[in-house]
Amino acid sequence: MNPGPTNARIGYIAFNTFREAVRDRVLYNLIAFALLLSGAAIIVGEISIDIERLVVVNLGLTAVSLFGVVIAIFIGIGLVSKEIDKRTLYTVLSRPVRRWEFVLGKFLGLTGTLVVNTFFMAIGVFLALLYVADKFEKMDLWVLVALYFIVLQFLIVCALALFFSSFSTPLMSAVFTFALFVIGSLAEDMRGFARTTHGVAGWLATAIAYLVPNFSALNVISQVAHGDPVPGRLILYNTVYALLYSAMAISGAVLIFQRRNLK
């Protein structure tokens, strides 16, 4: 490995993580996605009424999101442990690569994989939209915003998977990350519960409601399916939130990984 500057080292680890994911046939999920979406686009006109476009957007974006989350969790939890098991981590760290660079590189590699995956899926969604509606409309642009929010969602899930995998077994990391994904998807309910609870329990509920990742704000699929615009402020807030939350989880992962005894 070429020692080089920090950025180059992180980029190298990220690129290798991406290459490894591709070698692990992660992008094969695109075939399943293409079959799912094209099947739905063709069949829904026959079995339902007047919701062809809605189904393409709802099903397409939901599949992009869930496929991505599953990939993020199952690859994210193995990013560190696999390197330890295969003993490749020692080779990497024996070179002038700092531990935090390794963690950050892994994170960027996985998110890069998911961005590429999402890019191809997005092409699939728009092709299916073209098939059912014959032409694009202005409101289809909001689908891009929903896709952007899904990528932000991946940032958080990848960061969480990496965080848990920095101190836990792959199985437990998967359980923790998936549990946080479920809880985070119900974040609005949690905040509603916190508002109706008083005293210490209220404080505790509020603290938990604000600490768990808020995936519900990142889910605008239903909204864009109807062509409703997404406020610019929400795009800004979600971007800031996702970056901060990911940074928080990655920092946690770095802190733990720095102290971890790898001998």
Partner: peptide
């Protein structure tokens, strides 16, 4: 709605198709 984890749009489409069927 809770079981759908926020993916309510797709679930509504499924229920609408079910109603039509």
């Amino acid at each position: 709605r809770r079981m759908s984890l926020g993916y309510t749009g797709l679930l509504a489409d499924i229920y609408w198709t079910r109603a039509v069927q």
